[in-house]
Amino acid sequence: MTRSKVKLSYILNDTKRKNTFKKRQVGVVKKLDELTTLCGIEACTIIYNSFDPQPLVWPSVDEARRLIMKLKSFSKVDQVKRQVNQETFMRQRLEKMKEKLRKQQKENHSKEMTHFMFQSIIDPQTTLLMLNMMDYKELTTVTDQKLMEVVERMNEMRRRDSSSFNPPQVGADGSGGSGSQLQLVLRHDDFMPPNHGMFQSSSLGSH
């Protein structure tokens, strides 16, 4: 059975608030311990609360004091360079999500225009009437890009075929020789299927 989502608001009941604090405090320390172990970093935490006279210091008072002194030994610029409050953190996260959304929208639009491109080949009149001026420009860009990819693919296949096909060389006496410039000439009929003439005669006779 899944737990119901906890509403993030101040808990008015003292007993319930204290119990929630104890559980969450253990969770924070556990996550921090996992973070330092998995990522090999230094960290400490000091948690003040209204239920205990002394704050919780993790992993120890001496270690926390050492890390605080280490932080203070840095310049002011280095100290605040990566420090953020809750508002700044949320703003940074929101900007990242907006940028991710913009990239996804651009990718989706490109896929949509690719779909329109193929649809316009099948039914150009109906498909093109669905587009506005901006869509026409985007469709032109996508079509040009796809054509360039096709041309590049064709050129690649030609280069591959030309490098793999080396016509045999024959000498003046009919024997093979690398020094001769005479190449073997292939006739058009050499590429025809064995029954090509029969099919042609049959088709002519049917007329």
Rank of each mutant, 00 (worst) to 15 (best):
R3Q: 15
I11E: 00
L12W: 04
N19E: 03
F21Y: 01
V28H: 12
K30Y: 11
L32E: 01
A43H: 03
I47A: 06
N49T: 06
S50I: 12
F51L: 05
Q54E: 14
P55C: 10
V57D: 01
V57I: 13
W58F: 07
P59W: 00
A64M: 06
M69G: 08
M69H: 11
L71H: 13
K72H: 04
F74I: 05
F74E: 02
S75Y: 02
R82C: 07
V84Y: 09
V84P: 03
M97Y: 03
K100Y: 09
L101A: 02
E112P: 01
H115K: 12
H115W: 15
H115Y: 14
Q119I: 04
I122V: 10
D123F: 00
P124R: 07
T126V: 11
T127M: 03
L129K: 15
L129H: 15
L147E: 13
E149A: 02
N155T: 06
E156H: 09
R159H: 00
N166Q: 07
P167V: 00
Q169G: 00
Q169P: 02
G171H: 02
G171N: 03
D173E: 02
D173Q: 01
S175M: 12
S175G: 11
H188M: 07
D189T: 12
G197S: 14
G197V: 10
S201F: 13
S203L: 15
S206R: 14
